[in-house]
């Protein structure tokens, strides 16, 4: 469903993402790991058509993101890092705007979509509150609701559980798991347990390069008995 082919991104003379390739199939939950500044967000921004790649491309459901970005964006739900949203709007107004741009123009249809997204992310209690007055975790959930609204075939989530309380983290993980059967999901995280609990595959990226692409079990098998964080450290530290 997602096919990333040799993505490269240069910022000036600095190479933030260096020839990253991977595929994600329906039913997969791909965990994107890597130290700060490794290039996770940059890769996601190119995959979702926000940034133009220096080289390479990505296909989503057969649509090429460099040739037909709008077709890709239709298929995709994206939660950007730190969940930006229009702060002066209420939660319901904001989601109604998203619904309209996603093509749900009829009033009843729009309302149904917004309500479904509010229910899934447990936001009904703050639907009339302006987004700028929400706590960080609630803002994060608004971002998640926005990504889910059109029930997309592909979900790209940049640190979806960042800022959530332990209960909500669990809630979001359960939700992602439940939806994953008929979707392809890519998520980035710094929580290694999350990868074990959730992901069917792990990619570790360091200084823009993929250093591991395998199942969580295979990752464990690299150093039997070791904790995941020490494996992570040994994979990403070599190039300091």
């Amino acid at each position: 469903m997602i096919e990333v082919k040799g993505l490269v991104k240069n910022y000036g003379s600095k190479r933030a993402v260096d020839n990253v390739s991977f595929t994600v199939n329906r039913g997969d939950i791909l965990g994107f790991l890597g130290p700060n500044g490794a290039g996770k967000s940059t890769t996601m921004k190119m995959l979702t058509g926000f940034l133009r790649p220096t080289a390479g491309t990505a296909l989503v459901n057969g649509h090429d993101v460099t040739r037909d970005p709008v077709a890709v964006k239709r298929q995709l739900g994206y939660l950007p890092e730190s969940a930006p949203a229009y702060g002066e709007m209420t939660v319901a107004e904001f989601l109604a705007f998203i619904a309209e741009t996603r093509g749900y123009r009829a009033r009843s249809e729009k309302l149904a979509r917004v309500n479904r997204a509010l229910d899934l992310t447990q936001l009904q209690s703050v639907r009339t509150q302006t987004i700028e007055t929400l706590s960080k975790g609630y803002k994060q959930r608004v971002g998640f609701a926005q990504a889910l609204l059109h029930d997309p075939a592909v979900l790209v989530l940049d640190e979806p559980t960042d800022g959530l309380d332990p209960n909500q983290k669990n809630e979001v993980r359960t939700l992602i798991k439940k939806m994953a059967a008929e979707k392809a999901v890519v998520l980035s995280t710094h929580i290694l347990e999350e990868v074990e609990a959730l992901c069917t595959r792990v990619i570790i990226i360091s200084q823009g390069k993929v250093v591991a692409d395998e199942t969580p079990e295979a990752l464990h098998a690299r150093q039997p008995g070791a904790r995941l964080d020490s494996i992570f450290r040994s994979l990403t530290q070599s190039d300091r």
């Binding site: 239709r74 930006p84 998203i98």
Partner: peptide, 14 residues
Amino acid sequence: RSGTIELLFTLPLT
């Protein structure tokens, strides 16, 4: 500044 540009330009519009 607020980052909403990333949201806007990952919605299906030109």
